[in-house]
Design a protein around this nucleic acid. Structure first.
Lengths: 227, 227
DNA sequence: GGGCCGGTTTGATTTCGATCAACTCCGGAA
DNA sequence: TTCCGGAGTTGATCGAAATCAAACCGGCCC
C-alpha cells in the first residue's frame, strides 16, 4: 500500500541534510524540494523492481530500504541498506533508464522521490546540482567498493566487528548502542545468512561483545579493532 | 619508473571516448584534454596508495590498472580492473581528498590524469561537466554493485562464465576471444585465488569452454548462459 | 640445446559459511 | 492466561573455495 503525502518539517530537515541536497545553497535545495514526491510504504512493499523503467531516484526519510539483486533462480543478494537521509538509485540518471536492482521497504518507511527528467533539467542549468549529484554518487560508490573489499578480505565475525565499530560512539572504550533494524536485515547487508550472523555474534563474545535483543554492548572497543 | 609524456592522436581518441568526456560537447572535451597529464608506468608500479592525499583522478589509455584494498595483515583484495578508456578514482572528488584504496599498473600502462581542483573549477562553471562526471560515476557504481551481487550469488564457475559471456561477440553461438590480461589478474577481479580460477575453467569444460593460454573458445554460448 | 623463472595447473587438506532442521524466545491476540 | 507466529539461536552436515605443496609448462637468456 502506497500513500502519497505532504512533506512535514522534520522530513524536510532530513532531506536537506542528505548528501545530495546538503551540497547545495539553501535556496537551490529549497527549489528542488518543492518538486519532491513523498510516499509511505508498508513493510516489504516493493519500491521498484529490476528491469522496470526508471523515472525516479530516492532519498529515505524514515525507516530502512533494502536494495537487492534477484537472481534467475529466485535468490536475493543485498546490495545496500539505506536509512534516513540516504539516497539510492541515483545511478539511474545515466543507466539507460532501467533499474538494475530491486528495492523494497524493510519496514514501514517514508521516502522522497526525485523525477529524473526534472533533475536532469535543473542540472543542465545550474552547475551546483550536477556537482551535488556527484557527491552523492561518490559516497555510494565508496560504500560499494568498501563492501567488495570487506567481503573479500574478512570473515563473518570480522565483518560484524567492523559494523559494530562503525556504529560505536568514538570517545569511550566501552560502548552500547541499539541496532536500527532487524538482525536478519543486518545479516543480508553483510552478505551472511541469519544463522551466520548469530554465530558471528557468539564468536565476538570473547572479544567483549554482548548482545541482548537489539542492544549491543562492547566492553573493549580497542580489543574489537584487532579481532 | 614514471615518464611524463605528450598525448598522441590515438590516445586522445581513447580519452574522448571515455564515459567522462564522451558526455561532453567536443569543444568542452577538447578544452579539458589540454589540462590532462599523461604518464607511463612500468609493470607493478604504484599509481597511488590508500591514505595518500588525492589530487588526481585517472583514465587509462593503454594497459590495465588494478585498484585494490590493502588489509592490515598485508593481504590485497581487488576492487576493480580498469582498461583503456575507463576512468577510476573519480570518487575522490568528494571523499575528503584521501585515496581510500591503492592503485597499481598491472602491466606497462599509459594513463591520463585530471587535477581534481581544476576539474572542480571547470565543473562549477559549466553544468555539462558535472553531469559528465555523474555519468562516469554512475557507471562505476553500477559495476561495483554488480560485483557485490555477483560475488554473493554465484559460485566461481558461474562468475567465470559470466565474465566470458560479457566478452563474447554476441552474434554467433560459438565464439573465441583472447583474454586481455593475465589469468591471475582475472582471478583477482573475480575475487578468486588463481587456483580457483584454474579449477573454474576446468569445471566449464563440460559446458563447451576450452582454454589455451589466453585464448578462450566457447562451443555453445547458450549452454553457458544456463550454467 | 640446457637451464631457469614466473605463471599456471593439479593434488590434498582445511576452513568457513550455507543449508536444513529442530528448538527457544518473545510479543500480540483471543 | 494460553496460544500462535515470527524472529533468532543452536546443532549437524555439506559444499565451495582458500591454503599449502608440488608438478608443469612456455618463454627467455646463456
Amino acid at each position: 500500500m502506497i500513500k502519497v503525502l505532504k512533506l512535514n518539517v522534520r522530513e524536510k530537515e532530513i532531506l536537506l541534510r542528505s548528501y545530495f541536497l546538503s551540497e547545495l545553497p539553501s535556496s537551490t535545495a529549497a527549489r528542488i524540494v518543492e518538486h519532491v514526491i513523498v510516499a509511505s510504504h508498508e513493510a516489504r512493499d516493493p519500491i521498484f523492481k529490476q528491469g522496470e523503467k526508471a523515472d525516479y531516484f530516492y532519498t529515505v526519510l524514515t525507516g530502512f530500504v533494502r536494495v537487492f539483486r534477484l537472481s534467475k533462480d529466485g535468490r536475493e543478494a543485498d546490495i545496500g541498506i539505506y536509512g534516513p537521509g540516504e539516497t539510492f538509485a541515483e545511478g539511474v540518471m545515466f543507466n539507460g533508464g532501467i533499474y538494475r536492482f530491486c528495492a523494497q521497504s524493510a519496514e514501514a518507511v517514508t521516502i522522497a522521490r526525485y523525477e529524473v527528467d526534472k533533475i536532469k533539467q535543473f542540472a543542465s542549468q545550474d552547475p551546483a546540482i550536477g556537482i551535488a549529484l556527484t557527491a552523492s554518487l561518490s559516497r555510494n560508490l565508496d560504500q560499494a567498493l568498501e563492501c567488495v573489499a570487506d567481503d573479500r578480505l574478512h570473515t563473518a565475525p570480522q565483518r560484524v566487528a567492523n559494523f559494530i565499530l562503525q556504529n560505536c560512539p568514538e570517545n569511550a572504550n566501552s560502548a552500547r548502542f541499539r541496532l536500527p533494524f532487524q538482525k536478519s536485515l543486518l545479516a543480508g547487508k553483510l552478505g551472511l545468512a541469519p544463522e551466520a550472523l548469530s554465530r558471528a555474534f557468539s564468536a565476538l563474545k570473547p572479544a567483549g561483545v554482548s548482545v541482548h535483543g537489539r542492544i549491543i554492548e562492547i566492553g573493549d572497543v580497542n580489543a574489537l579493532r584487532n579481532f
